[in-house]
Design a protein around this nucleic acid. Sequence first.
DNA 1: TATTGTTATACTCTATAACTATA
DNA 2: TATAGTTATAGAGTATAACAATA
Lengths: 151, 151
Amino acid sequence: MVTTADGSAQLGVAASLVRLSHVVQHVFADVGRRHELTPQQLHVLCMLLDGPVGMSELSRMMHLERSSMTGSVDRVVKRGLVSRMPDANDRRACVVTLSDEGRRLAVAAHDDVTARLEALTADIDSEDRERWPRVAERILAAHDPAWVSRR
Amino acid sequence: MVTTADGSAQLGVAASLVRLSHVVQHVFADVGRRHELTPQQLHVLCMLLDGPVGMSELSRMMHLERSSMTGSVDRVVKRGLVSRMPDANDRRACVVTLSDEGRRLAVAAHDDVTARLEALTADIDSEDRERWPRVAERILAAHDPAWVSRR
DNA sequence: TATTGTTATACTCTATAACTATA
DNA sequence: TATAGTTATAGAGTATAACAATA
């Protein structure tokens, strides 16, 4: 808690980010559960929405060890949501690809998460709603400078 | 991605919250690792910073089943970071209490997380830095109306 | 030699169901 | 009956180390 100029107490910037993160995680877990997906499985599917990705790249995107990815991908493969396709240019590698069912689930869950978060921010001034994503992008860029160029 | 009035592309409110959440989780995991704590263990310790808490209340605070809490608390007990004390008013219950070592670790890690997040937001206009926590509180209140009254 | 991906192993984390003890 | 907490069980998630195959 921080005391502001007018004497009222409010969360600090860091504390508010942590709290908000918990809200997002909670929404993510809840939406996943409704689709019978764990948060991690949903996360994997969302990473594949823009197209197939190799195991190494996927583990980098998710900040996980490659060996951890193997098991995570195995579980969604077993559910028929993704498949491993051979990489045409590198016989060591494979690309993980959404199945039709996987894409359907990923899109539905992604839309649900978006809707839930939009609802939570519905009563915020439109000025702040416009302003916030720009602030967020500054934070993302500070955390991962490469993020800017990946867009 | 959303296209704004001036034609530039930027993240939507929901997408920016999700991305930010990942950054926070990453900072949390990284700080924990430096103190040889898993993110969940750090989370438990932080929940106890304001004073001892019973198992049921703790599981409510962390959105976990009580049986999951048992194991989580067992692991930090085993490391000597917390202990279960009998509840003076209810012989069924116990209160989980930080040890000196646990408090030291919790404070150090908490400060590290705060410092890292403050650093990430350091180059943001002071107006936005002041404004953001108020916006965040609106979101927290929308997600959990009881949160307001708990402050 | 470096990279891609997997296996083996050992934990941590989590939920469900059934249980004990106290309120 | 209801609540506080645990146990038993099963599975998901994760990291480390060692390995195979290809680049």
